[in-house]
Design a protein around this nucleic acid. Sequence first.
DNA 1: CGAGAAAACCTACCATGGGTAGGTTTCGCT
DNA 2: AGCGAAACCTACCCATGGTAGGTTTTCTCG
Lengths: 200, 200
Amino acid sequence: MSIDAPARRYAKGEAKRRAILDAALAVVAKHGYRNSSLQEIADAVGLTKAGVLHYFDSREELMAEVVSERDAHDRARVDGLEPDQLGTLSRIIEHNGTVPGLVQLYSRLVVEAEAPEHPAHGYVRERYALIVETLADSVRARQREGSVRADIDPMVVARAATALSDGLQLQWLHDQTLDMSGVFDAALELMLGAAPRTES
Amino acid sequence: MSIDAPARRYAKGEAKRRAILDAALAVVAKHGYRNSSLQEIADAVGLTKAGVLHYFDSREELMAEVVSERDAHDRARVDGLEPDQLGTLSRIIEHNGTVPGLVQLYSRLVVEAEAPEHPAHGYVRERYALIVETLADSVRARQREGSVRADIDPMVVARAATALSDGLQLQWLHDQTLDMSGVFDAALELMLGAAPRTES
DNA sequence: CGAGAAAACCTACCATGGGTAGGTTTCGCT
DNA sequence: AGCGAAACCTACCCATGGTAGGTTTTCTCG
């Protein structure tokens, strides 16, 4: 999560920690999740395994933090103050079509964090809850302004949009020619009753 | 896949092989994917690791075969001759809400098989292609019979339905109270222009 | 029915992985 | 200056997937 204690560190440590995060991201993005060991990350940043483990309790925790960091980064990049979260999600999906390594990492984490003991379990859970709630609000806003029929259940759309996003990324991992945001937008338009579209 | 050579074996071996598959499924369903080692499976079936590896080249291949077997089983159970594949998918999803272990296994496999070297890579890829094509046909059939608007792109719906299915299972793994088939049906109805519904 | 080939195993071993224990060096504040 | 904590390292441990090479079982066929 983000409520972790300040964890007082020296300046050097702070920098190193960031370096590890970056290195981990790079390594994972290049060699994939499963093929990136602590050893490799440690080498990339000039430490030993134990050195890395000094900053992160476990490999899983490291990975979780990489994702949550990137998550926050992405969100901030695109979020702004826009109320149209559905559009924002679409753009995030579009952007994800650029970074296979990250999509892979994210997918892995979501699947693995299913176990309650997993360090990222709570994070993923809350993330889902937040996203769904936000999207539902977005639908409600559109309903209020009249651009979406009032008899549509916002929760259904919110859950569906979230599932769509995740599911499309899974498919995309196996076939990078898939136009994720294209399908997403089209499907959403169908659900919200806008004019239909076509896809290749 | 399914084009594997006959691989002549003794009767005993044939039986053992099946036993391994069953044991693996059971172990995975109980302890989860990550916590089920070759050792454990071997113990469950009265062999050593090497004994198991005699039948399957690797742990990954074993897992892949477990999934593909279960896949075939599920499909046969529900498939029949029904042309309404969308409905079939809905029922499969509903049934999946019963077996968390399998959903977990399936999700893991899909994510891991992303790497082209993975033994199940081809399988998953073809599986996706088959499902999407089948669902698209299903949509086209409905369009022909007039129950679905003709200006809807069948491929969009097919891809979206597939993604929805996968994505909902991911969410469900983190929150078993989620009504997968409920959301799925509702979302599909929205897309295909039927009467709207509500969800809890 | 009795070779003999192949299948069905096993024991022993290896490398890699995550992770721990406990020490030594470096840092920075009083 | 000195002291406590952070920033590391070395040396382990153990489980894991996987391999090498042998031994026993099973079947087939003359």
